[in-house]
């Protein structure tokens, strides 16, 4: 296990290198000159040239890459070209709000989603199954900004219970956390149900059923373990997605998250911030996937870690 972990971690290094090249190339391939955007329409060509130099955008592209990569390895992320704030600070300010919102959304969505899924799977085909599944699916079928705006209208304007947005007390988490988790809960519910139903029908489970109680218990253990696989996959994926920030929900709820930061940075072509944020996301994903692969093995020892 330990060997596996070390090897997996080592194997992520080339991924990060590939990501860095990809990100750098992507950012620089986007049409739009950051110096021009920074300077605004009133600026003179001389101003813009000066800004470009200041941004380190002079010289051949490969040397720019090497300079950036070299600095990044040493955690010198530079300054935002837009606000001139250190990139680490820009990201730092928004990382925690993003993480907490993700955690809140994931927790409620996983608990509710998996419970609905299990209930549905066990009561498959009965009215309980249909009702809870239609409910769960309804959650995922709402366009999130519409849902968000309706919630704000109800809970902030009409009832005055919750703030319209921003980051602060637990009250600020309720609506964005709920909206963000809604889609996840539905996905979790359906996958849990699916996995449950499918594996309940597996040969060994049916055999166990026919043979009587003790083996049935064994089979249940198997069932749960196997059912867990897609649920784990999905939890990992969803967690990664949500950590990437949700620009729509962050915009609606004025949430200081990474999604909005990234989209704003792209429209300003704020290269240092875009690059650093995407590198951070890659790192998160790599770590999450590693965790997922390890959990596979925990859930089902038949899947060996090679």
């Amino acid at each position: 296990m330990l060997v596996y972990l070390v090897r997996r971690l080592a194997s992520t290094l080339p991924v990060l290198v590939v990501v860095s090249v990809f990100v750098f190339a992507f950012v620089h391939a986007l049409p739009g000159d950051p110096a021009r955007l920074e300077a605004g329409p009133e600026a003179s060509p001389a101003d813009i040239e000066a800004i470009r130099k200041d941004m380190g955008l002079d010289g051949p592209i490969w040397s720019q890459y090497l300079r950036w990569a070299g600095n990044t390895v040493q955690f010198r992320l530079g300054r935002s070209t837009k606000t001139r704030q250190p990139v680490a600070e820009v990201i730092g300010e928004r990382f925690m709000p993003t993480l907490w919102l993700t955690v809140v959304a994931m927790i409620w969505a996983t608990i509710v989603g998996v419970s609905i899924g299990v209930l549905s799977g066990v009561r498959r085909g009965r009215w309980q199954d249909r009702t809870v599944m239609v409910l769960a699916i309804s959650g995922v079928s709402f366009p999130s900004f519409w849902m968000g705006l309706l919630l704000i209208d109800l809970f902030s304007v009409r009832l005055g219970w919750l703030p319209t947005g921003g980051y602060g007390t637990w009250k600020h988490f309720v609506m964005p956390g709920f909206t963000l988790g809604l889609a996840v809960a539905a996905v979790m519910a359906r996958f849990t149900r699916s996995a449950f139903v499918e594996i309940m029908a597996e040969d060994y489970v049916r055999t166990a059923r026919m043979k009587g109680v003790p083996e049935r218990l064994v089979a249940w253990k198997h069932t749960l373990r196997n059912a867990l696989i897609p649920v784990i996959t999905l939890t990992g994926l969803q967690f990664g997605f949500l950590l990437g920030g949700a620009v729509v929900i962050e915009t609606v709820f004025s949430w200081p998250g990474l999604g909005r930061l990234l989209v704003d940075s792209v429209s300003f072509r704020d290269y240092p911030v875009i690059q650093a944020v995407i590198m951070l996301f890659s790192l998160e994903f790599v770590l999450i996937n590693l965790t997922v692969d390890v959990l596979y093995a925990v859930a089902n020892p038949e899947i060996r870690l090679k």
Binding site: W100, V103, V104, I107, W108, I111, V112, G168, T169, W170, H172, F173, V174, G177, F178
Partner: peptide, 14 residues
């Protein structure tokens, strides 16, 4: 239910 859960999950938010 969400509210309840948030109350549990978010003591840090205070």
């Amino acid at each position: 239910r969400t509210l309840l859960m948030l109350g549990v999950a978010l003591p840090f938010a205070a």
